[in-house]
């Protein structure tokens, strides 16, 4: 079982990011989320989501999924954003295993069902 992301359905509302961080912090914040809205290319209207799992970083781009094995060398042809969050330092997705009433919070709170359980 895992998180499935449809970046074309995503409206970049950041609900997933907030509730994921809430699950870690028991307060409202964004800093601990393992799923984040990718929104650094605002002028180009290019957005999607990034999800850190235990061994991989999933980048859900509008044109498709990109799965990067953590620890492998990054593609030198791809430019990193100055504001890219330190996703790799964050805890990986645990499917909100301690949130019995909800299941994964990002799935429960996504208003447009862009995030589902696979």
């Amino acid at each position: 079982m895992g998180i499935k992301i449809n970046a074309l359905k995503c409206t970049n509302c950041m609900a997933c990011e907030m509730v994921c961080s809430y699950h870690r912090d028991d307060g409202f914040a964004f800093l601990s989320a393992c799923i984040v809205s990718y929104r650094a290319k605002e002028k180009k209207d290019y957005f999607g989501m990034m999800l850190k799992e235990e061994d991989v970083l999933v980048v859900a781009r509008p044109e498709g999924l990109e799965i990067n094995k953590i620890g492998e060398e990054a593609d030198p042809d791809k430019e990193a954003d100055a504001s890219a969050k330190p996703m790799l330092l964050r805890e990986g997705c645990d499917l909100c295993e301690d949130m019995d009433d909800y299941g994964p919070m990002c799935v429960a709170f996504c208003p447009v069902d862009a995030i589902t359980l696979d």
Partner: peptide, 29 residues
């Protein structure tokens, strides 16, 4: 091009218009 929402807002109230780009483009312009 695409529609986007304000923070935690269930309806996407913002619409992006591509003026110098193919509106169906999915990759980063």
């Amino acid at each position: 091009h695409r529609h986007s929402a304000d923070y935690f807002t269930p309806y996407a109230t913002n619409t992006y218009l591509f003026l110098d780009e193919e509106s169906g483009l999915l990759e980063e312009s």
